[in-house]
Design a protein around this nucleic acid. Sequence first.
DNA 1: CATGAATGAGCTTTCATTCAT
DNA 2: AATGAATGAAAGCTCATTCAT
Lengths: 211, 211, 211, 211
Amino acid sequence: MGTPHVGSTTDEGPRTSRGERTAARLRDAARTVFARHGYATARVEDIVAEAGVSHGTFYTYFDNKGAALDALIDETSAVLLTVVDEPWEGEDVAATIEAVIARFVDVFAADADVIRAWLEATAHEAHFRERLREVRDGYVERVAAQLEPALHGTGHSPHSAAAALVAMVEGYATEMLSDDDLAERERTVKVLAAIWYGGLLRLSGVAGTEA
Amino acid sequence: MGTPHVGSTTDEGPRTSRGERTAARLRDAARTVFARHGYATARVEDIVAEAGVSHGTFYTYFDNKGAALDALIDETSAVLLTVVDEPWEGEDVAATIEAVIARFVDVFAADADVIRAWLEATAHEAHFRERLREVRDGYVERVAAQLEPALHGTGHSPHSAAAALVAMVEGYATEMLSDDDLAERERTVKVLAAIWYGGLLRLSGVAGTEA
Amino acid sequence: MGTPHVGSTTDEGPRTSRGERTAARLRDAARTVFARHGYATARVEDIVAEAGVSHGTFYTYFDNKGAALDALIDETSAVLLTVVDEPWEGEDVAATIEAVIARFVDVFAADADVIRAWLEATAHEAHFRERLREVRDGYVERVAAQLEPALHGTGHSPHSAAAALVAMVEGYATEMLSDDDLAERERTVKVLAAIWYGGLLRLSGVAGTEA
Amino acid sequence: MGTPHVGSTTDEGPRTSRGERTAARLRDAARTVFARHGYATARVEDIVAEAGVSHGTFYTYFDNKGAALDALIDETSAVLLTVVDEPWEGEDVAATIEAVIARFVDVFAADADVIRAWLEATAHEAHFRERLREVRDGYVERVAAQLEPALHGTGHSPHSAAAALVAMVEGYATEMLSDDDLAERERTVKVLAAIWYGGLLRLSGVAGTEA
DNA sequence: CATGAATGAGCTTTCATTCAT
DNA sequence: AATGAATGAAAGCTCATTCAT
């Protein structure tokens, strides 16, 4: 929130409640417009039109177009980090995995628009590439740490395994999931959890000699 | 600019061998530049500078920037469809899966630059969105058909499972793999194959009650 | 470039008085530049230089070059239609004709620059062709209606006669008249009026057997 | 024919009969394309496509686009000058006038496409303005000379009267006449001749006191 | 704080013309 | 003579950003 865009040091934002309302309108508008056109193609004019404010007002709240995306990413990555930091261990491993995946899928589904714009922006701005690496490395490492004991001595890198599992969840959730079909979401979580769990068993050498 | 452009197969092009050489130079240059800047930020001027031709020459071969990406996608998707259509069945299921994944990872690694530009372009041009859906649906369906027998009666949708496994391979290969470390690539293929196979066992109900 | 453009009445434009001033400056500049180079060869850059504003400002007020000509045509054709609608009948036919012609010549002389650009533009844009036809048909029909009684039963079409007389006045006024020589203008009006009146007599069969 | 464009001193053109054929094809094509798009908007590419030759061939025959129009104007103005120089006096003045007008209208109708392109080109190239003035002055002066005796002592300038009558015929013929309706053409000639003759009577003071 | 006119660098695209083959 | 690829100087138009009000 308010984290300035790269190179900027001033904290954007309003001091009054009227200003807070305008800022919120602009964030919402930016999100809508990024979802509609993508980040690169979105025009500041579209955003202010959507927000119902004048052109100049945008720059009262953001240093530039990138800062608006940054503000959205602030929120999304905060939520993602929260999810990563939630407790993970549990009696029933399969159920724990399913719970973790469900939480991730929920976040991805809720913020898919922001994430897609973010991913797109990584293609042309190093700043967004870095922010993505930072957050993604965060949860890949967290997952890798969880996998460590199970993979110990198998020759498989926990990091690789974590990256693969994360790629699966992320890719499915951001690109293939329609954001309103709740039943589909539940089925998806079950499939992802099964693959994750079965994959882990196989990686750890516990199962998979049959069939 | 979100503006649509002409179809995928450009009728532009040379009638002489000199022209063929120029066209190839432009395609290579486009690829290099898209890899460097992303699609949206790439300028035609960058491409012609890289190719060592004049500005106008670009338009002798392509209607616009999008047409250049289309030409690259033509090649990449042809290769992808070839991989999809290669034989799939084999005595040893685990080995077969590993072989298939290895082929996919090879293609993705080889054409990661094109694919990343393509993915980015889906954000602002419907045309590229459609081409991606077309090709991706192609291999998701192919994979789903393979999974069908194993998942029959389990309540899991072959399509979802296929989408998840494909997302894992695609995501890992295009975003997390450095394109020159061959050893890393081999380890990765083993991990992906293990997850894929173990996940399948679990999905099909064969294994996974242990642990 | 033969490309069509937006309608005649631009919704572009200023909401402030400063903007109104800029718009007027641009209209004047466009007129000057069209007079100097013709429509096709005139560059937006010439217009903004003449108006003393930046390049982008032009597009705040007009969608494109054609819209600037449209704005000028709006004014000119409004004046022309006014002249057409002024009273026409009078005691002395010859004097009435002279008065009407004088009014027309005045308008054509005053707006010859716009009209010449307009005529030129009809060569490459259908839109201007249509606007011309609309306005010209307007006064040709008005004149034809006046001639009707006199030509009744003569076998001559009032429309043809009107078209011929209008062509004479239009052609003379826009192409052959220098716009500052007032004495020349007065002599011209007398000649045109004499031809018009004598021509009518002859067409109506009243005179012309002599000589 | 072969008169080079302004500034050029080489006589364009072919030495062989094959070359002559190509030149003719290009002239025809230029005429067609100028008629379709106007002079400014016509592209050399359109002309060569219409002629069925390659791009470079155009420049074997013409120094530039203007030279192609010049070649067409060469033909048209030659015909116009011929008409002007044809005998003019006759027993029956009214009949003579009608004959002269008929010849003019025929030429204008036949070459309306060239003339329209020529008129348009006067808007942006001084060269064509000069050629037009030259030819037009030619027949205006010729007509003025004919009117001289009749207008002597009336206070009306023979030049003005000639210019008005020429403007009428030119304007009507190039802008208002459809080029294929022969009956319309005949009626038009009668109307123009009547106005011309009646106008003259009036100008010379012979008639017009009635009505 | 909000407004919206003004800026101008930047990018795409076009097309007359040249020239090696 | 004919070809068509290559050139590069123009334009046109867009849009992030600034700033006077």
